[in-house]
Design a protein around this nucleic acid. Structure first.
Length: 896
DNA sequence: CCTCTTTCC
DNA sequence: CGATGGGAAAGAGGA
């Protein structure tokens, strides 16, 4: 029979710890009513992680009844705890809620006039020990370690409130040179306590005190034998401060025999009271906690008495996996999900799958051979049964891996959520579903994360988890579709993003072949060059150092070599290219460093990086396009990023030679939009001058140069003027500032401002549109693209100039960049259809924002040169033409 | 995990 | 007064 357990918590001390543990978040953690919650959140974590799992038999949270003044210590020593800073108001306002929290977690609060929390704990701990309990004390104050015995453990919080140091008598002896818990008091008497403001003995700190106590055990023996102590400054101090020491000892002694108003028996631990805790969490805006509770309830992990409190008490029907017939009974709308172990659906293991609907239940299994049964396969491949999924692109690839084609997926919660609000993108289902008041457990709660990821041995738990996911999808479709309709985004969703997801899945699954030998050879050549440059750098530097470390490099260049500091970063000197280029003529090492940087980048990111992700079975790279990440509607590409393969420098561009067709006698074919963003700008602004330039197929940078520099139609344009005009055009698209442009062109701000003013004079509707974009963002809180893609800009209202300015530039740039993204997405969907209709073998492989890359039989190249630009420039009808250029060759290098 | 740097459109 | 161009991914170093 185990001993009953008693938990004693030092409320005041933990409240302080909690407050300062989350002090940085103070301003962010405020409820809708303006109550700070940082300490409450930390305190609740403590309850969650320490108290609830411990589930003691008795528990008390002790609080100071009033300041130390009214206790015996205040009477004994008038300065006791004086000079202590007042409790910050932000903490004080949280204390009453903390007591409620304690109560709702099933613990009793206790305070008593004339006693500090320490004394309450001291007395109860002895009382508990006498009753044969196993006592656990939790505090942030080391003084309480004096209470430790074989039956009383004192836990002192380390950093935060959930990490703890356990003080047992053995641990104290080990840590403090053989000290007993009782001697902690003697130590405090000698050293004093600055926070409680009592003195101890002059010049005696922990080390000296430990030495003295090892010799004399306590104050009484010390002073009894002080005459034999050989003369020293310390001895003088001990004699001088004798009264102080004894007084401090009384102050440091925690009462263990105070008269308590209530006996321990009154403090039975009652467990969490969900009826009161849930509304309490609601008033505190504890969304995560509420989500957790609901998830636990749903998965039936709380006791049955708790279950009744669940408003949406859901019991999922899990169909037996040996009953395939049940699947055929499912309706014409089913939720479908394959669960995988990780992010990379091309390579990661599949954990289980589920298919089902709300009426008939969910068929979940870990046996993937069942998916090959005609019953299930027919549903997935059916063009009439509607499938509801989370991340249709991933699901489509997963089914492809199983040789099954996912058809007619009409609802993708991930895509829909992204269109509704780009800011909470790419989150997992559980997180996104919370917005709709649907709560399920995070994957992390089931599988753990990082190195600890593992599939639970309890198969039922896994199947229940994935069944909940499917059920969530069935519940979400209605409210989500309503919102899309309200946003007028049904067309964007149904005609662009949803079909695009399948196109992307096919591109990713097809992959692009890379010539590994070629990469290998380039790598060896790079290595040789790197070694040479390294040598040159060390020679110039006169020492060896880590060139890859901006910190070490900065010290060398700007301290040891004394080069002028051009720019600083938050943490030190900037060594970025633009800085090094300005320094290049001052020391030969600088040029070497620039060269080293380029070579090192090519080697690590592009040679080693790409080789590491070549899929062994087919010698191809299968990137993943993130369709729900960017704030503008562009795609991004990961594992690896195939949207930043070098192009600008010849050495880097060589990398593209390793991207080759996957079939003999095929070629790489590429097509890109020419100046799509400026054309979109001309269309959206309606600016007649800008539109005319494109309608006449003029060189846009030259036209801008004419406008900005006031040149005649036939006047010659210098390359410098054209370069400046190009920078202006870029600046316009990005939301220009005279500062940015002056930096970019190395001209004065005044001059840059003249360029911009002149530009806006010549293209007045561009100016008008820019101003209007900012106004719109201000009034409605968001901006839109041509296809009604939406981006919210909360910072447009910011008081902070920087944040507001960013939001304003974003308001101007997002409609342009985002509309260009809309256009190429539409083109990609049409492209897939057209390639199919023309019975071409050509395959679309990559998208790089304004460019599409294909592989095709050489014989199809002439037809592609016709079809591809035609499909791309007719993707949408703008007031200006879209222009497409194409190239082809035996690899990506020669197709550009 | 964050900072710095480089790569792309 | 003074901040000051849009959107991304990845590797290396260092806390």
């Amino acid at each position: 029979m185990t001993k009953p357990t008693l938990l004693l918590i030092d409320g005041n001390s933990l409240a302080y710890r909690a407050f300062y543990a989350m002090y940085k978040q103070l301003d962010r953690m405020v409820t809708h009513d303006g109550l700070h919650t940082n300490a409450l959140v930390a305190f609740n974590n403590f309850m969650d992680q320490i108290v609830d799992p411990m589930s003691p038999d008795y528990a008390v949270v002790a609080w100071d009844a009033d300041s130390g003044k009214s206790t015996f210590r205040g009477e004994l020593y008038s300065e006791y705890k004086s000079g202590r800073a007042k409790t910050p108001t932000e903490l004080a306002e949280q204390l009453p809620y903390m007591r409620e929290m304690v109560a709702f977690h099933g613990l009793r609060n206790y305070e008593q006039h004339g006693l500090e929390a320490d004394d309450i704990i001291g007395t109860f701990s002895r009382e508990g020990e006498a009753l044969g309990y196993s006592v656990t004390i939790v505090t942030g104050d080391r003084d309480l370690t004096q209470l430790a015995t074989d039956n009383i453990t004192v836990n002192v919080t380390k950093k935060g409130v959930t990490e703890i140091e356990r003080f047992t008598p053995e641990y104290i002896a080990e840590k403090y040179n053989g000290l007993t818990p009782q001697q902690i008091i003697e130590m405090k008497a000698l050293t004093g306590d600055t926070s409680d403001n009592y003195p101890g003995v002059t010049k005696i700190g922990e080390k000296t005190a430990l030495k003295l106590l090892a010799q004399y055990q306590d104050l009484d023996h010390l002073y009894a034998n002080i005459d034999q102590m050989k003369a020293s400054k310390m001895k003088e101090n001990l004699i001088k401060d004798r009264d102080q020491a004894f007084c401090s000892r009384k102050l440091a002694t925690i009462l263990t025999d105070a008269d308590m108003a209530l006996p321990l028996a009154e403090f039975e631990y009652r467990g969490i009271d969900f009826d009161r805790l849930i509304p309490f969490y609601e008033t505190l805006d504890f969304k995560q906690q509420l989500a957790k509770i609901r998830a636990l309830k749903k998965s039936g992990q709380l006791g049955s008495e708790d279950q009744s409190e669940v408003e949406d008490n859901l019991s999922l029907t899990i169909l037996q996996s040996n009953n395939l017939h049940a699947v055929t009974e499912l309706g014409h709308q089913v939720a479908l999900h394959i669960e995988i172990a990780g992010d990379n659906y091309h390579t990661d293991d599949m954990i289980g799958f589920v298919i089902g609907d709300e009426q008939r239940g969910y068929f979940a299994s870990r046996d993937f051979s069942l998916l090959q049964s005609p019953e299930i396969k027919a549903i997935i491949e059916s063009p009439t049964v509607e499938k509801r999924v989370y991340n249709v692109k991933a699901q489509r690839v997963l089914f492809k891996r199983l040789d099954i084609e996912l058809r007619n997926a009409t609802f993708d919660f991930l895509l829909a959520a992204y269109l509704l609000d780009t800011t909470d993108n790419n989150a997992e289902l559980a997180t996104l579903a919370q917005k709709y008041d649907i709560y399920l457990q995070l994957d992390e709660d089931i599988y753990g994360k990082g190195a600890k990821f593992s599939v639970p041995t309890d198969e039922g738990r896994v199947l229940m988890h994935i069944a909940h996911k499917a059920d969530t999808l069935n519940q979400l479709i209605e409210p989500v579709m309503v919102q899309l309709k309200e946003h007028e985004q049904l067309a964007l969703y149904q005609d662009i993003e949803l079909p695009l997801a399948s196109v992307l899945a096919d591109m990713e699954y097809t992959g692009i072949r890379v010539d590994q030998n070629q990469l290998q050879e380039m790598g060896e050549s790079l290595d040789a060059q790197i070694v040479d440059v390294e040598k040159a750098i060390y020679e110039e530097a006169g020492e060896e150092f880590n060139i890859n470390s901006p910190k070490q490099l900065g010290i060398l260049l700007f301290e040891k070599m004394g080069l002028p500091v051009i720019k600083r970063t938050k943490t030190g000197y900037s060594t970025a290219v633009e800085v090094l280029e300005k320094l290049a003529d001052q020391a030969p090492i600088v040029a070497y460093i620039l060269q080293y940087r380029q070579l090192a980048k090519l080697k690590s990111t592009y040679i080693d990086g790409l080789l590491a992700v070549v899929y062994r079975q087919d010698s191809k790279i299968h990137t993943r396009y993130l369709q729900t990440l960017t704030q503008t509607g562009r795609l991004s590409s990961v594992d690896p990023n195939l949207q930043n393969i070098p192009m600008r420098t010849e050495a880097g561009r060589q990398i593209r030679k390793a991207f080759v067709p996957s079939e003999p006698n095929w070629q790489i074919f590429g097509a890109d939009y020419s100046q799509i963003e400026l054309r979109v700008l001309a269309h959206m602004t309606g600016d007649k001058n800008l539109q005319r330039a494109f309608l006449n197929d003029e060189d846009i940078h030259s036209e801008t140069a004419r406008a900005v520099f006031g040149l005649n139609d036939d006047a010659p344009i210098t390359s410098l003027q054209r370069r400046a005009a190009k920078a202006v055009n870029f600046g316009i698209v990005y939301g220009i500032s005279d500062f940015g442009l002056s930096n970019n062109l190395g001209i004065s701000r005044a001059e840059a401002k003249r360029f911009i003013d002149t530009y806006f004079e010549k293209f007045p509707q561009v100016h008008e549109w820019m101003e209007n974009a900012k106004t719109l963002a201000h009034e409605q809180g968001y901006v839109e693209t041509l296809a009604k893609r939406r981006r919210y800009l909360p910072d447009i209202h910011a008081k902070n100039f920087n944040r507001r300015s960013f939001a304003e530039r974003t308001a101007m740039n997002t409609p342009i960049q985002g509309s260009a993204a809309d256009i190429i997405k539409i083109a990609m969907i049409k492209m897939n259809q057209v390639l199919h209709e023309h019975h071409l073998q050509a395959r679309m492989l990559l998208q790089v924002h304004d460019e599409l890359i294909f592989e095709a039989p050489t014989s199809e190249i002439p037809e592609l040169e016709e079809i591809v630009p035609q499909v791309m420039d007719s993707a949408v009808a703008l007031d200006v033409p879209l222009k497409v250029e194409s190239r082809h060759g035996s690899n990506w290098y020669s197709a550009k």
